[in-house]
Write a protein that binds this DNA or RNA. Structure first.
Lengths: 211, 211
DNA sequence: TAGATTGTTAATCGATTAACAATC
DNA sequence: TAGATTGTTAATCGATTAACAATC
């Protein structure tokens, strides 16, 4: 039966992209789309699109294609975007603050509930009405407040310790921006954004453009 | 012969990670390491490590392993980190400013030379001694100044236009943070950091943890 | 119904892992 | 030299693409 079995990471990584294009189509008032038309827009093969979607269910209709709005809803649900996520940010330097604003203004459903830093000059500061708390208050805070996602924006030296506090405090997922590979329990989802690695692979492609 | 032929993206994505671990090993004073020891640290199989490295050359020695420092140097060179990259940032909101600071303090070799924004309240501001210039000055600036990397931190509506100005202005690579898939000439390297997509896949794994 | 397009199986392609001869 | 470990070929695994019967 569809939907059972393990879905590969490659498939999951494509889902948000499908959703973005469906979002655009909705805004443009498009009601239906075939895998072939979607392929022309998004750049994956029609075959891959049908394969990907059929991991989760038969959302299309032969001879018709896919209903844009219905498919958007399905993918949103699959991604778990039909509910809210409470988040905290640990490390409130430029990047931490940028993420606070970013999620505040653009990402409905992802709510920053608290921010923490070790730097006394940041503690007490308000960012989008959220006061930066002292790092030493983190354990207590997590004990009292159920948090879904912990965002790590510290330097790499502190990141593993922070991750452990977050895991102990029962977060369900960690969004890690520190340039280090964290070790966390399998129970906790981990998503890394290694900006440094990303910039370095860009350097690679720049250096090897004419090959 | 080694080194010719196309290297897959999967391999390139692993290179910065190899480099990070070699960096650590150097700092810990380790001189040599076998693919098997490195495998235990980094989590790739020893076989994969040897395959990856042999895409670029035979850096090891039978019966000995790899010289940590020499391998670090080789990977740095392969990634193109043996030279500087001049960068500009377009879009100086929180994220743009955060990246300016990030590269300024942590990323030797990646130099922010200019920043641009359309918002008059940001124009004139100084971030790490770099004045934010008016977006209308971008074309002129690029005509006079050779820039390697353009960083796009605008909203998604402006990103494609910015990309086209950057390409016209002869940048070699684009580091894109806008949530949109840009169309650029094959001559220009493109690296996307889709924070929104990343957060959504984290939501997926949180929602499906117990399967 | 006839035409279109899906869902799904089979074929292909590419990437990872295993094995081992080469060699330091 | 004997032991260790690479470089490289072969085997396996998984992901993508092609093909087509099912069906709206």
């Amino acid at each position: 039966m569809r939907g059972s079995g393990k879905i590969s990471k490659a498939v999951i990584k494509r889902l948000p992209r499908y959703r973005r294009y469906l979002d655009d189509l909705m805004k443009r008032g498009v009601d239906r789309i075939s895998s072939n038309e979607l392929s022309n827009l998004i750049g994956y093969t029609a075959s891959q699109i049908r394969q990907d979607l059929n991991n989760f269910g038969g959302f299309g209709q032969q001879g018709y294609g896919y209903n844009v709005k219905a498919l958007h809803t399905e993918i949103s649900r699959i991604l778990g975007l039909d509910r809210d996520y409470k988040m905290i940010i640990v490390g409130c330097g430029n990047l931490g603050q940028a993420l606070a604003n970013y999620t505040h203004y653009y990402k409905a459903g992802f709510i920053v509930c608290g921010m923490f830093d070790i730097n006394p000059r940041l503690v007490g500061l308000k960012i989008n009405d959220i006061e930066v708390m002292d790092y030493s208050a983190l354990d207590d805070y997590l004990e009292k407040t159920p948090i879904d996602i912990g965002i790590i924006c510290t330097n790499k030296g502190s990141a593993q310790e922070v991750a452990e506090k977050l895991v102990a405090g029962k977060v369900k997922g960690i969004w890690n921006f520190a340039t280090v590979d964290l070790t966390v329990s399998d129970e906790v989802a981990l998503e890394n954004v290694h900006l440094s690695d990303s910039l370095q692979s860009l350097a690679y492609y720049i250096s090897h453009r004419d090959e």
